[in-house]
Every structure is written in C-alpha cells, then in structure tokens.
Design a protein around this nucleic acid. Sequence first.
DNA 1: TATGAATGAGAATTCATTCAT
DNA 2: AATGAATGAATTCTCATTCAT
Lengths: 205, 205, 205, 205
Amino acid sequence: MPKISQEKKKQRQTVILRTALNLFSQKGYYLTSIDDITKEAGISKGLIYTYFKSKEEIFFELAENWHEFTNTPSLDDSLTDVVPQELPLSEKLIRVWDETVRQWTPENLDFARIKFEFWLESSKNEILRERMKEKARRSLTIVEKIIIQSKPGADPEIAAAFSRLWWAQVDGLTAYFISYGKLPAEDEMNRIRRIILHLCQYFDD
Amino acid sequence: MPKISQEKKKQRQTVILRTALNLFSQKGYYLTSIDDITKEAGISKGLIYTYFKSKEEIFFELAENWHEFTNTPSLDDSLTDVVPQELPLSEKLIRVWDETVRQWTPENLDFARIKFEFWLESSKNEILRERMKEKARRSLTIVEKIIIQSKPGADPEIAAAFSRLWWAQVDGLTAYFISYGKLPAEDEMNRIRRIILHLCQYFDD
Amino acid sequence: MPKISQEKKKQRQTVILRTALNLFSQKGYYLTSIDDITKEAGISKGLIYTYFKSKEEIFFELAENWHEFTNTPSLDDSLTDVVPQELPLSEKLIRVWDETVRQWTPENLDFARIKFEFWLESSKNEILRERMKEKARRSLTIVEKIIIQSKPGADPEIAAAFSRLWWAQVDGLTAYFISYGKLPAEDEMNRIRRIILHLCQYFDD
Amino acid sequence: MPKISQEKKKQRQTVILRTALNLFSQKGYYLTSIDDITKEAGISKGLIYTYFKSKEEIFFELAENWHEFTNTPSLDDSLTDVVPQELPLSEKLIRVWDETVRQWTPENLDFARIKFEFWLESSKNEILRERMKEKARRSLTIVEKIIIQSKPGADPEIAAAFSRLWWAQVDGLTAYFISYGKLPAEDEMNRIRRIILHLCQYFDD
DNA sequence: TATGAATGAGAATTCATTCAT
DNA sequence: AATGAATGAATTCTCATTCAT
C-alpha cells in the first residue's frame, strides 16, 4: 500500500529528470551535483535515491529519453505538417532543414549541448550505447522515409546513407554553434541553405 | 648549469601532454585524475605541477594544440600532396574527403572523442573558447583556400559557407562513429562518398 | 521535520569550535589540521564543512568570539561583583587587576596563547582585523567606565589612554608568561602588584 | 679545503637569515616557503640546506639572534647616549621610553610582529624557549641597571619587577599597534606618555 | 515516505626535503 | 659547491551515497 500514488510518483520522477536535464545542459554532468538537482527540484537530498539508484542512472535515463523532458516539439511531429506529399523531394528535404534550423534557438542549443555529452559518454560506455541506439535510429528514419515516399524506387541503402549524411551535417553545424556559443548570422545561414538545397537535389538526376 | 636541459624539459612536457591526451580521450577529462596521469607518465604526483599549474591548464593546452600530440599528420600537410593543382574543384574536394576519411582509424577516433570534449567545455567556458578560436578558423580555411584557388571568381563568403558545411558534415560523421564505437562499413562509406561528390559539384554550375 | 534540532546543531557547532580552540591553543593554527579537529571532536572529516565553510572560517569565528568557548568567566561579568561603587578609584582598579591575575591559570594561559595568534593573523589580514575590532574595543571600555564612574570629571581621552596602557601591561605580562611557559612566582606577583597600585593612583592627584 | 671561504659562507648565511627574517615578518613563518626565501635571497633551492638543516632551524636561529639581522640599533647602544647620569631616575626612564617609542616606525612594527611569532612558538617548544631565554633576560636588565645605578639602595627584586612590568607595557602597546596595523596618533601617545611618567615616579617616594 | 545530517573515499594541490647532475 | 628537478606525504575540501529519525 504505497503512501503515494503511482501517478504522483511518476510526476515527481519527471520533475527530477527535467531539472537534471536543465542542469546537465547548462553545467554538464560532472559539474552538476546531486545537491544541485535536489535543491532545484525542491526535494530533499535523500529522496532522489528512492526514484533513481544513482546519479549515473539519471543520466542514463535522460540519454535515452531526454526528448520527452524538453519543450521542443519532436521533429517527427512538426514535420508531418511541413512536408506536403505533392512537393518534389528536394523541396521536401529543404523544408525539413528549414524546420530543423528554426528550432536552433539559444535555449535549444543548451539541449544540443547535452546531446553531445550523451554521445561522448555513450562512446565510453557499452551499456549506455545500447540504450541510446534505438533513439538514434529513429531520427535517421525520418529523412529515409521521406526519400522512399518520394522516390519509391530508390535504393534503401542509398537513402540510409543520405540520411546519415544529412544528420551528420545538421549535428556538425549544431556542434559549431554550441562551441561558438552563438547562432550563425542570418545571411550566413542563407548561404548554407543554398548549398544544402544543392545537396537535396542528389536524387533529382 | 640547469640540471635538465631545456630540450629534455620540453620532452617531458610532451610526455605529460601525450599521456593526458590519451587518458582524457579514453576516460574523459573529469574521470581522469592527476594521479592517473602522473602514474601513466611515470612521474611523481608533485612533478606535474612544475610543468603545468593545474589540471585545467593541461586541458586548455591540449584543447589548443592537441593535434601536435597525436601521430595523425595534420590535414594541412597531407593535403598539399593529395591535391594537385590541375584537377577540377570537385575532384580536389573529394580527395580532401578521402584523405580525411583515411584517417578515421579506431585509434584516431579516440582523439576525435576528445575533440568533442573540448567543444563541450568551450561552450561553457569563455576563456577556452577564445583560446580555441584560432585553431577552429585554421581548419575552416583549408577548404576555403582550395575553392578560391580553383575558382578565383567565387564569392569568398560562399566559399566560407561551403567550408563550414563541409566540416560540419565531417564532424557530424565523426560524432556518429564515436558514439557508435565503430567505423562505418566500407560499402556504406562508398555510398556516402558518392553523395559527398555530388555536394562537391556545387561550384560546377 | 529536520533530522537534528536547531539546538543540537548549535551544540555540535560549539563542540567543533571548542575542540578547534583547544587544538589551536596547543599546536597553533597552522599545525592543526582539519583532520585533527574532526578526530578530536569525534565527527567525520566531511561533516565539519556543513558547519563551517573552511578552516579559516573556524579561525575567524574563534578570533571574534573565542571567549564564549572558554570556561573563563568574562571579565565583564566577574568585575561587576568585585568593584563595589563606594571604593576609591585606585582601589577599584587594583581589584580589577587582582581579578584578572586570578584568572592566569595554566589552563587559561593556553587560551591566552591563541589570543596572540589571533593578533598576529589580524595584523596580516584586513578582514580578520575588522571582525576583531569591536571585541577589542569592548575590553578597553571596562576600565574606561570604571574611571569615568569614579571621576565623572575626568577627560575621557585620558581615561581611554589609561585604559589602553592598562591592558597593554596586562597583555604584555600575559605574553611573558606564555613565552616562559609558566606563571610568575607569587612574591614576584606581589612586587608587580605594588607597582600597579602606584600606577592606579594616577587619577588621585 | 673548502671551495668557499669561511667568510663568504658567513656572509651568505647572513643574507639568508636577513631574507628569511623579512619574509617571516611580513607573511609569517608558516606562509613563507623555502622557495620564497631562496628566490628572494637569490640562491638555489637546494643550497639553503648546506647552510641550515631545515626551515625550522632558520626560524630558531632568528628567534635567538634576530636583532642582529635588523637595521634597528639595539636599545642597549642607543640608550647609553640618551640617559645621562645626572638626571633623576624618572627622567631617565621616560627618556628610555621616548627612545623606545621613537623606534616604532611602520618598518619596525614588522619586526615586532615576528617577535610575537617567536614568543608564540617558544611557548610551544621547550628547546626554542631555552634558546631565547638569555636574550629575553638581556633586555630586562637594561631598565634594572638604570634603576640600580640611580638608586643604589633599591631592592634588586623590586627593580626586576618594575623592569618586567615596564617591558610588559611596552610589548603590550606594541601588540596593539601590530594588530591595529597602524601606529597610535601623536596626541594619544602624549597622553600615554604622561601616565608612563607617573609610573616612572614609583621610586621617587 | 521524507529529511538532511553524517560518512569517507578520493580529488587537486603544496611544499620541505633529497639527490642526480 | 651549486642547481633545480623530483619526490611523496600531507592538506584542504567535495560529493555521491547512506541512514537514523
């Protein structure tokens, strides 16, 4: 007979994860202490251990599902609206890019930062890597699907390769902006966009 | 009359930095202790402080000059050989890519990992960011220069944008392989390469 | 709902300060380690930092309020009893002296020793000096007040000068006995007392 | 056959002691490192150990003979001039006081500070106490001698007691000024002087 | 459940002293 | 004699985790 309802417990867990995500994003995992998290979350230091068995577990949990604790709409959702079926493939793809870039606000760059932290850790930790795998695959398929839908005859492996390169480019740019600490100027973005458009025409020939 | 020659001192400094780079690469900055470094470098705990005034300084030093402590040839050097003047631009660029990719060995991916650690820290640390700036600029110019040399009439700002996108894509792919813990299969690389080639033709029209 | 009551917490703080005072008195500030204090106080090393944020803070706290952590009654209190109003001034003053000297037990000389340590540090440390100022002023006023009460017409500045000299002489004697490691012989004290009595007659003319 | 002459060695020892005295005076014994001393003295770190077997020994040496390494004239010397035989005792004594006070310059207060440090250490260290004893006795006798010379019939023990009180008062005032970090204002000194003069008349009756 | 006091292993750094050159 | 690199014990302080209340 738990004194606290399952629901309440779930809610609190969410608060903890959201708080931890925020702090990890701002200061990084190692510079964020359990004290920081519990204070910010408004609970006592001991209590956090009834929800998570260690600081590492919180990190793992977030590495897997961090997107749930963000206010950013997932790309999946936002894209269904911006990519009408009737457009040519390159047009669809550039819209995906536009949508992605639209989300590069200073606030979201904080979250981008922690994404790299997750990557970094996963590269050192087999278990974490396993747990993050499925997540990674999912975003890859977004672009893949668009390609296959537009060009049903396209080689799925080529679509996959394109998709990987696509996200590589997105993540690489994100990394630059994170490390520079600021977003790119608008005219620079426009120039980049034109090159991306060229890239998107890969399947046109 | 100094007990140890300037040269010897430099050598030892190099040993320390190399050791630190290795450990930071494998375990990350925060999980590597001064103890780890000195033990691995075969020196006493105190000695490291005659070479560097803090652990952070070692990290900063590496963030700025880590390439010197790797066995990887710097891209600058290796590229002058692989990019003969008479080739068309897209051919030149794809050779740069080939050369870049050729260096993605498991050992070097370890170093790539620390590059992201530097990025991550620099995003939280103004001083580090300043110190890394020039380095970042340098690699950007490699591709810029190739473009300008081949197409003297090209808009330098477009060349810069292309260059940024180019390295974004490279770094993004690196990030993937780091987080996956393994290099891409050869045939996947070939598929990606073909798309890159398409990208390289941006200036052809 | 706090695990430990405010009172208990205060108590523990007192234990720490008392222990620190004892150790500082015996071995000096620099030769007393946090380890020494916590072991002697029977607490864990880490716990001390929930009560004080640094070793220096403990020292500062004691410099300001060390008298509270001694079993010596404060002069203020003990004097009100020994100085009846109707006595002539010199008689009052010599009683203050008697009372002061009565407190020069070997145990208290230990505490006297740390007083000099506080002085020494305060001479090198602006902040400490500031914090000790009020304390110093307070003991000065004891004698001042007695003079003014007995001789309402006395120049307050002369009373202040007398008071300063008075305590200088007390502290100087204390210093001697500290450095000799033992209290003066009784007959020597009697000789000194007679000279002090002469000094006390300064206001008699 | 020593490579360096005895004389040269003595000279260097003096340089070390003088340097150490300066540093100890300013920063205190514990906050002065061997490095500080050797750098300031212009010798190598190792060399100091051919002159003194430990940092403590330097301190001991100074505790015993620090006056030799100061530029302050010793009171002994300066007093023979200021105390002509024909003056009444109280007049002689006040001149001693004047001469003492004349030496309270900010620079000398630095040395006064270290005197307290020596006292403090000696109170914790039997050996040091033994070594400093003779020195302490010497300054006591200055006033004793003056008294006995003026009043040949005076009880030597009373002269000794007066002398002790005399120096207590001097040292106590010094302590105040050290801890306040500044010298007393001139008019305050004049008021104190007048009280001292009263004290000096002790033997007049 | 919830609290936050308590623990103690471990971290970075300092520094007197030694010793190879 | 002289140098200053090298040592390593000791120091202060932090922090994830436990546990009495």
